[in-house]
Design a protein around this nucleic acid. Structure first.
Lengths: 156, 156
DNA sequence: CTGTTATTTATGGTATAACATGGGATAATA
DNA sequence: TATTATCCCATGTTATACCATAAATAACAG
């Protein structure tokens, strides 16, 4: 049973001419517990790459077969898209993965990428895009939780 | 099974040029039961740093892991905000952690910090800011609960 | 209660290991 | 054979582990 297994933090890394990126060392530590590869796919809801351990997709698959009624047809379709798109990305001894053209294009990533922790998953963004997205999310979350708003002045 | 597991008290510690701070020994005793690291993130509601054990965030992740919400936009936002900001801070044999620039800036901490217990969590404040905040909170509590006022002095 | 000693904790400084990243060599593919 | 992917080594940078000293706290004897 592993102790640490949450993808966290926001890390900026360079992408070299070959499309290689260092997977943040914290992430690697998590992955290494079970294997030496992560699973990536194009996010369905945003222009970014999503990554996770294969375990998570396995759990999704199990849940799908066990409780069919639980899911709408839309969600059923969504899982099809994910599994059709997902692919394993092994990392070498220096901890780098090589992202495919398809993924890079979808996330508009060229020479740099930002890894954003999401708990059991993480996302990989174009740095500028993530900056905007983070601002958008912050605004939206605070809007939906007015109680947080007044004190939020100290931000930034 | 640990005996003590509440972060309490208010402790003042120095922050050196590298951003290192000693985690109060009481806090360390709690953390050591399970690991040798804490998780910190910028408070959403105040200009301070919040800290807790990874277990607390893990529980949050588990709740969100439910496949029903695999595609939920709200949860997407929340997980980005929380896990994207949180980070593990391990402490060495002398009990120090190294706070990131991001955290220090958010809490306006330069050369000293105050640790404030909050039960399962704790906060780290700029000393002056905490002084004001404590006064503010005290005033507010008394205002909203006038019935507490008379007895508050004679407590034991 | 008082002064002294013994432990623990906080803090400053330094050496070491880990990491991100560039480049090149080797292997696989088509 | 040309192209692309995988592996391995080299380097500057930065965080981490470790040691040493100072301060604070607790323990104890007079």
């Amino acid at each position: 049973m592993r102790k640490t297994f949450l993808f966290m933090d926001t890390i900026y890394n360079k992408v070299d001419a070959k499309g290689r990126v260092s997977l943040p060392s914290d992430y690697r530590a998590i992955v290494k517990e079970s294997s030496s590869e992560i699973v990536c796919y194009r996010s369905l809801s945003a222009p970014c790459i999503e990554g996770c351990l294969e375990d998570l997709l396995d759990k999704l698959a199990s849940d799908m077969e066990n409780s069919l009624d639980f899911f709408s047809e839309t969600q059923d379709n969504l899982t099809n898209l994910i599994f059709g798109d997902a692919k394993r990305y092994p990392f070498d001894s220096t901890g780098r993965i090589m992202l495919s053209e398809k993924l890079l294009k979808h996330a508009q990533i060229t020479d740099a990428a930002v890894f954003v922790g999401k708990g059991r998953k993480f996302q990989i963004w174009n740095p500028q895009n993530w900056e905007k997205e983070e601002a958008r999310i912050r605004a939206e979350v605070l809007k939906n939780r007015p109680s947080l708003k007044p004190q939020a002045e100290g931000e930034k």
